[in-house]
Amino acid sequence: MSAALPKIRIRGLCKSFGEKRVLDGIDLDVEAGTSTVVIGGSGSGKSVLLRCILGLIQPDAGTIEIDGVDVLRQPRREQERQREKIGMLFQNAALFDSLLVWENVAFGLLARSGRGGPRIRRSDARERAGEVLAQVGLDPSVGDLAPSELSGGMQKRVGLARAIAARPEILFFDEPTTGLDPIMGAVIDGLIVECVRGLGSTAIAITHDMPSARRIGDRAAMLYRGQLVWQGPAASLLDSGNAMVDQFTHGRREGPIGMELRR
């Protein structure tokens, strides 16, 4: 029975900002240990979906279950406990400028130290940060640099290291390859796949980079005007048989997806 329970189950998720309905009844299951890629145009609600699951945005309606527990109906403390299972790589890495790289990587470990997580000294956290930096292909000496001294690709790696440092059960990736050259994009994708498999985590990535989507994802879903219009294997993204997905993945101007103009 419990084997069939998805790691993340979303039902009827809705969110509006003023008149604009950004999420309009999203239903999505993400099985444990799999990666799901959500594709869609800019402003289609991909980031809002992730932020709702993370608790950064309160949805208007619907349920979000993690391990069968509806996090939206839980007391605040329980919600925070559920969400501690999640690690997140932000679009621009979102590293803390005022901290050194190793402090960024070890931030979650130190924050949880003695508060639900194992008690950890700063020296041990420093050591663990070095290990995780090595895991994402960076020399541990990078830990002593400031984030502003790193290139975009290195910042993404550090962001990934920060996301996986506490060995989360769930990983979210928000546009992981945006702003990177194709080779660096492939390197980051490779690291993401390695980390997800290495940790046995469940992952959701949002992107509109098709090669990246196919490299990262086991499953894929397309979000359009607040609704999931297609779900299927990531490998079939380029020949899904769905007119919207085909137009999007092949970058065609003609098709059912019209360019939205702001009135």
Binding site: L54, G55, L56, E80, E84, N92, A94, G108, A111
Partner: peptide, 20 residues
Amino acid sequence: AEIGTMRVTDQIDALGTLST
């Protein structure tokens, strides 16, 4: 300026995802 920059570069959201 510091906190505002943290807000627009998602650093404040990142704090929330790191148990802080």
